[in-house]
């Protein structure tokens, strides 16, 4: 029997959840026995070639590219997991939701105290993905099967959840592993 495949991605996040994932330390050897990897920053594969059993999504959706990747993950993964506070609730990137987009861009590219931008223009290259009006948690964009909170979720929490998901066992996290911070 072939091993179940796991894909991961980081949308509007800081890669902290992926760092936490790597904090499983020597259990990474067990992980190699347990699963194969689909697209993930860990192996730098960019595209799906097979269906994946589990997709771990870090970060919420801040722009059109995040939405595209998230939809691709939804299409190719049996079980999609929002991993970390940004994916489940928007997190730090969603703090921009409290000001208007115009105000946010003006502060970031024109008026911020440390900004050096002689053109005085906001970047608008076609290559750059368009920003969404609001940063959204993943479940406001696609159907999400599980939420794994934490900033980041601890390595133990990610490990426990992943092991349960690839072996069809129920996820049972002890109280100490459920954290929003």
């Amino acid at each position: 029997m072939s091993k179940p495949k796991v894909a991961t991605c980081s949308l509007a996040g800081c890669f902290g959840c992926h760092m936490s994932f790597l904090d499983i330390d020597e259990r990474i050897l067990q992980l190699v026995e347990l699963v194969d990897f689909g697209p993930s920053p860990i192996n730098d594969l960019k595209h799906f070639t097979d269906r994946c059993r589990v997709g771990l999504v870090e970060g919420g959706c801040a722009n059109a590219e995040n939405v595209r990747v998230l939809r691709e993950f939804r299409t190719h993964c049996d079980i999609l997991v929002s991993m970390g506070y940004c994916a489940t609730s928007g997190g730090i990137p969603a703090m921009r939701n409290l000001v208007s987009m115009e105000e946010c861009l003006r502060e970031a590219y024109m008026e911020g105290p440390s900004v050096h931008n002689p053109t005085g223009r906001v970047p608008g290259d076609l290559e750059l993905p368009l920003l969404l009006d609001k940063v959204r948690p993943c479940h406001e964009v696609v159907k999400i099967d599980y939420h794994l909170p934490g900033c980041p979720p601890s390595a133990d929490a990610i490990w426990a959840a992943l092991c349960a998901l690839v072996s069809d066992a129920p996820i049972e996290l002890p109280y100490q592993l459920i954290k929003y911070d």
Partner: peptide, 14 residues
Amino acid sequence: YRMGISAPRHPFLW
């Protein structure tokens, strides 16, 4: 935490 809420299911109002 006690109620096992991993994420709110309602849309955020910001």
